[in-house]
Design a protein around this nucleic acid. Sequence first.
DNA 1: TCAAAAGTGTTATCGCTACACCCATGG
DNA 2: CCATGGGTGTAGCGATAACACTTTTGA
Lengths: 223, 223
Amino acid sequence: MKFDVALGTSLVVIAFDGEKLVTLVGKKSEEPYRGAPMLPSNWVSASESVEDVAKRLAVKILGMDKVYLEQLNAFAKVYRNPMGRVVNIAHYALVNWDLVKNVKVEGYEWMNLNEAPEMIFDHNEILEMAYERLKRRVKHRPIGFVLLPKQFTFNMIHALYEECLGKALDKRNFRKKFMRSQLLVEVGESIFEAPGNKKPSRLFEFDQKEYDKLTLKGYDFKF
Amino acid sequence: MKFDVALGTSLVVIAFDGEKLVTLVGKKSEEPYRGAPMLPSNWVSASESVEDVAKRLAVKILGMDKVYLEQLNAFAKVYRNPMGRVVNIAHYALVNWDLVKNVKVEGYEWMNLNEAPEMIFDHNEILEMAYERLKRRVKHRPIGFVLLPKQFTFNMIHALYEECLGKALDKRNFRKKFMRSQLLVEVGESIFEAPGNKKPSRLFEFDQKEYDKLTLKGYDFKF
DNA sequence: TCAAAAGTGTTATCGCTACACCCATGG
DNA sequence: CCATGGGTGTAGCGATAACACTTTTGA
């Protein structure tokens, strides 16, 4: 056994701009491949927690720390990085677009998830896996809410689900399904979802407490 | 950046003995903690594929290579191993009990999944995560079949599902549900499931082709 | 012919799908 | 008062859950 492997972490940050899923793509700042598109990434030293590094990276590139972060997978193929054996413990991050859309960090750019450029190493594979996970998560757990503002309209969440699942969903049935689930509480306020709308939309919040309670009882969210 | 991290892999091997879920527990062969219970594990050198090492380890401790193997998670806490920074890319393996029950490998022992002893480092946490994954997988994908012989009776799969989901399932409804799914084909033969049974049980096989076909069409197995 | 396990059917309820119109509001 | 997007109801159908007896066979 030898201590001769390097550790890194990449972040697939996903947000929903109201229409499309977007992700944050960076550029390599050093040779080789300087300037090439890549996922936001960092080295992890032997004395650092991978999770901490991932969190710090998220704060740096997003300008805030309200991030849903979860380990995605370890990418560890022998020749994935020409510098030597580098294990990438990639993370999957979901953020609320409203909190990040105005943040501008040099070298990072939001792009449509489906239109990401070719990236270095196996970063496209990492991105792909994150996307697959999102699609599955959205079906089996009420995770979509972290991509939305704390308070949101039915139209927002409806659009998000249509985008994640890649198909049209009937407006009435969608509403009924969520309402029956007891997971949404009506806030009692309304907003104009888009400027120029004639009628304001009612706002809802996700009821995390209720969800936790139901989960303990064996409830299983399915879409 | 430094190449100063060590890499290892542990295996959570799960099988179903017809009644209980079982897992393979090893013993540490070197100091420190020689003799202490641990998950089957191996070091991975900088030039080796983690997946390959995991597969070889599976072959060694199971005596055969028909194993469903999948990455579970990277366990990478800073102080998880007192020797230094060791990243464990743990794997989750499902095997058919009939193929392994007679294999005896020195130092490894089958134990009930729920009665595993306290193990070194974070191995209990790894085991726990594998168990959680199994429970989820069984609900959302027809994965249970890899824990059964190629041909199995309804009672076997019924018992397996009851065990994985941790609750009783109505025999008739269970059968109807699987039959409607079109995923099982009747083999046309029967066996005596237990010695001394009065009536033989019919045998079924999982129809992988049909499942792949349905999956392509967007079919989603749910239990 | 009996003991033991395999295998089967019906009903009531619930959730899902498909589908089209009214409502509230600002301009 | 009209244009725009927000919001609602119902009917049919398929899935689920609850429930107990008949069949096959070896001993």
